[in-house]
Measured scan of single mutants.
Amino acid sequence: ETGKELVLALYDYQEKSPREVTMKKGDILTLLNSTNKDWWKVEVNDRQGFVPAAYVKKL
């Protein structure tokens, strides 16, 4: 879809709370919100949640 910003997972991340999502290094995720410098909201496999901003980079 146009207008979607994507990020690349630089590291594996295992969710530690229900508000977070698990990702694997190399995953491409849809970026939903990056206003917080530490935690970015992403969508992966129809799930939305937060990942550490340092673990992903914008494509």
Score class of each variant (00 low, 15 high):
residue 56 V to D: 01
residue 53 A to V: 05
residue 52 P to A: 02
residue 21 V to A: 04
residue 4 K to G: 10
residue 30 T to V: 15
residue 45 N to T: 10
residue 59 L to K: 04
residue 24 K to P: 01
residue 20 E to H: 06
residue 13 Y to W: 11
residue 24 K to H: 10
residue 54 A to S: 15
residue 23 M to Y: 01
residue 7 V to K: 01
residue 9 A to N: 01
residue 47 R to I: 07
residue 58 K to R: 12
residue 28 I to D: 00
residue 57 K to F: 09
residue 28 I to S: 03
residue 3 G to N: 13
residue 8 L to I: 15
residue 26 G to E: 02
residue 6 L to P: 04
residue 11 Y to H: 11
residue 18 P to C: 10
residue 11 Y to K: 13
residue 16 K to V: 09
residue 58 K to E: 07
residue 4 K to T: 11
residue 55 Y to A: 13
residue 55 Y to L: 15
residue 47 R to W: 04
residue 23 M to E: 00
residue 22 T to W: 04
residue 22 T to I: 03
residue 27 D to M: 15
residue 23 M to F: 09
residue 29 L to F: 06
residue 46 D to P: 06
residue 53 A to I: 03
residue 45 N to M: 12
residue 15 E to N: 06
residue 36 N to H: 11
residue 17 S to P: 05
residue 41 K to G: 05
residue 32 L to R: 04
residue 27 D to S: 07
residue 26 G to F: 05
residue 50 F to W: 15
residue 19 R to Q: 12
residue 44 V to Y: 14
residue 12 D to S: 08
residue 39 W to T: 02
residue 54 A to W: 10
residue 51 V to Y: 01
residue 19 R to F: 13
residue 46 D to R: 09
residue 34 S to C: 12
residue 16 K to D: 06
residue 32 L to Y: 04
residue 20 E to N: 06
residue 19 R to H: 11
residue 43 E to Y: 06
residue 6 L to V: 08
residue 17 S to C: 10
residue 8 L to V: 15
residue 23 M to R: 00
residue 8 L to K: 08
residue 3 G to W: 12
residue 6 L to G: 04
residue 58 K to W: 07
residue 58 K to Q: 09
residue 46 D to A: 11
residue 46 D to S: 10
residue 39 W to H: 03
residue 26 G to Y: 05
residue 9 A to G: 03
residue 42 V to S: 00
residue 32 L to F: 04
residue 42 V to N: 00
residue 59 L to D: 03
residue 45 N to K: 14
residue 17 S to K: 07
residue 48 Q to S: 12
residue 50 F to S: 03
residue 13 Y to T: 01
residue 11 Y to T: 09
residue 50 F to T: 03
residue 52 P to K: 03
residue 51 V to A: 03
residue 57 K to I: 15
residue 14 Q to P: 06
residue 51 V to N: 01
residue 21 V to K: 02
residue 1 E to L: 08
residue 36 N to G: 10
residue 25 K to P: 03
residue 32 L to S: 03
residue 42 V to C: 05
residue 15 E to F: 05
residue 47 R to H: 08
residue 4 K to S: 10
residue 22 T to L: 02
residue 56 V to T: 04
residue 13 Y to E: 00
residue 14 Q to R: 09
residue 59 L to M: 10
residue 33 N to S: 13
residue 22 T to S: 15
residue 30 T to Q: 10
residue 37 K to L: 10
residue 31 L to V: 06
residue 31 L to R: 01
residue 43 E to K: 10
residue 56 V to N: 00
residue 4 K to F: 12
residue 32 L to T: 04
residue 34 S to N: 09
residue 46 D to Q: 12
residue 3 G to M: 14
residue 11 Y to W: 10
residue 2 T to F: 12
residue 10 L to N: 03
residue 28 I to E: 03
residue 18 P to K: 09
residue 34 S to G: 12
residue 35 T to V: 09
residue 19 R to S: 13
residue 11 Y to G: 06
residue 53 A to L: 02
residue 14 Q to I: 14
residue 49 G to H: 02
residue 7 V to E: 00
residue 28 I to H: 05
residue 30 T to H: 11
residue 38 D to H: 15
residue 41 K to P: 01
residue 43 E to F: 06
residue 51 V to C: 04
residue 19 R to G: 15
residue 37 K to P: 14
residue 4 K to C: 14
residue 57 K to Y: 08
residue 33 N to A: 10
residue 5 E to L: 11
residue 49 G to F: 07
residue 36 N to I: 05
residue 58 K to G: 07
residue 22 T to C: 06
residue 10 L to F: 04
residue 10 L to A: 04
residue 47 R to N: 06
residue 38 D to Y: 15
residue 30 T to L: 14
residue 52 P to F: 03
residue 1 E to T: 14
residue 12 D to G: 06
residue 4 K to P: 13
residue 7 V to W: 07
residue 16 K to R: 14
residue 10 L to Y: 04
residue 15 E to Q: 12
residue 28 I to M: 06
residue 7 V to H: 04
residue 30 T to M: 11
residue 50 F to V: 07
residue 5 E to P: 10
residue 39 W to P: 00
residue 15 E to C: 13
residue 45 N to L: 11
residue 39 W to C: 07
residue 31 L to M: 03
residue 30 T to K: 12
residue 58 K to H: 09
residue 4 K to E: 09
residue 33 N to R: 06
residue 54 A to V: 09
residue 47 R to K: 11
residue 42 V to A: 01
residue 9 A to K: 01
residue 52 P to H: 02
residue 48 Q to C: 11
residue 18 P to G: 09
residue 49 G to Y: 05
residue 17 S to T: 12
residue 42 V to W: 00
residue 43 E to I: 08
residue 51 V to W: 00
residue 20 E to R: 04
residue 53 A to K: 06
residue 12 D to A: 06
residue 17 S to M: 08
residue 17 S to I: 05
residue 23 M to L: 09
residue 57 K to H: 09
residue 17 S to V: 04
residue 18 P to R: 09
residue 33 N to F: 06
residue 49 G to R: 02
residue 2 T to G: 14
residue 55 Y to D: 05
residue 33 N to H: 07
residue 27 D to Q: 15
residue 58 K to V: 13
residue 52 P to D: 02
residue 50 F to Q: 04
residue 9 A to Y: 01
residue 5 E to Q: 14
residue 32 L to P: 00
residue 24 K to C: 11
residue 51 V to S: 01
residue 1 E to D: 14
residue 55 Y to R: 06
residue 22 T to D: 04
residue 9 A to L: 02
residue 35 T to G: 12
residue 58 K to M: 11
residue 38 D to Q: 12
residue 8 L to D: 01
residue 18 P to M: 11
residue 9 A to F: 01
residue 52 P to E: 02
residue 17 S to D: 11
residue 2 T to Y: 12
residue 33 N to D: 15
residue 55 Y to I: 09
residue 35 T to D: 15
residue 56 V to A: 03
residue 48 Q to A: 12
residue 34 S to V: 07
residue 44 V to W: 08
residue 42 V to G: 00
residue 30 T to W: 13
residue 36 N to K: 07
residue 4 K to N: 10
residue 45 N to G: 15
residue 29 L to W: 03
residue 22 T to K: 04
residue 33 N to G: 07
residue 39 W to N: 02
residue 7 V to C: 14
residue 15 E to L: 06
residue 40 W to A: 04
residue 46 D to V: 07
residue 30 T to D: 05
residue 7 V to M: 05
residue 22 T to E: 04
residue 44 V to F: 15
residue 52 P to S: 02
residue 11 Y to R: 15
residue 32 L to H: 05
residue 5 E to M: 12
residue 2 T to W: 11
residue 33 N to C: 11
residue 41 K to N: 07
residue 33 N to T: 08
residue 54 A to Q: 11
residue 27 D to K: 03
residue 12 D to T: 05
residue 2 T to S: 14
residue 26 G to L: 02
residue 33 N to E: 14
residue 16 K to N: 10
residue 14 Q to Y: 15
residue 34 S to I: 06
residue 34 S to E: 14
residue 23 M to P: 00
residue 44 V to T: 15
residue 46 D to K: 11
residue 31 L to K: 01
residue 44 V to I: 15
residue 20 E to W: 03
residue 48 Q to Y: 07
residue 19 R to K: 11
residue 27 D to V: 04
residue 6 L to F: 15
residue 21 V to C: 09
residue 2 T to E: 14
residue 45 N to E: 14
residue 53 A to W: 01
residue 13 Y to R: 02
residue 51 V to D: 01
residue 28 I to T: 06
residue 31 L to Q: 00
residue 31 L to E: 00
residue 57 K to M: 14
residue 46 D to G: 15
residue 33 N to I: 08
residue 49 G to Q: 01
residue 8 L to P: 00
residue 40 W to R: 01
residue 19 R to L: 13
residue 2 T to H: 14
residue 39 W to I: 03
residue 32 L to D: 01
residue 9 A to M: 02
residue 3 G to E: 13
residue 37 K to Y: 07
residue 38 D to F: 15
residue 49 G to L: 05
residue 40 W to V: 06
residue 15 E to S: 15
residue 14 Q to N: 14
residue 26 G to T: 01
residue 42 V to Q: 00
residue 49 G to I: 05
residue 48 Q to W: 08
residue 26 G to R: 02
residue 37 K to Q: 11
residue 24 K to V: 10
residue 30 T to R: 13
residue 58 K to N: 08
residue 21 V to R: 02
residue 34 S to P: 06
residue 10 L to K: 06
residue 13 Y to H: 04
residue 22 T to G: 08
residue 3 G to Y: 13
residue 32 L to Q: 03
residue 19 R to A: 12
residue 38 D to G: 08
residue 5 E to G: 09
residue 59 L to G: 04
residue 16 K to A: 11
residue 35 T to R: 09
residue 9 A to Q: 00
residue 45 N to C: 14
residue 23 M to H: 00
residue 15 E to I: 06
residue 44 V to G: 15
residue 28 I to L: 08
residue 13 Y to C: 02
residue 25 K to S: 07
residue 36 N to R: 08
residue 31 L to I: 05
residue 12 D to N: 08
residue 33 N to V: 08
residue 49 G to N: 01
residue 40 W to F: 08
residue 53 A to D: 02
residue 52 P to Q: 02
residue 13 Y to D: 00
residue 59 L to E: 05
residue 58 K to C: 11
residue 20 E to T: 08
residue 31 L to F: 02
residue 55 Y to Q: 06
residue 20 E to C: 07
residue 24 K to Y: 10
residue 35 T to H: 11
residue 20 E to D: 05
residue 25 K to N: 04
residue 3 G to A: 13
residue 21 V to Y: 03
residue 21 V to E: 00
residue 8 L to C: 09
residue 37 K to H: 12
residue 55 Y to E: 04
residue 56 V to E: 02
residue 34 S to T: 10
residue 15 E to R: 12
residue 16 K to Y: 05
residue 14 Q to F: 15
residue 6 L to S: 07
residue 41 K to A: 08
residue 54 A to Y: 09
residue 2 T to V: 12
residue 34 S to M: 09
residue 57 K to G: 08
residue 2 T to Q: 14
residue 2 T to K: 13
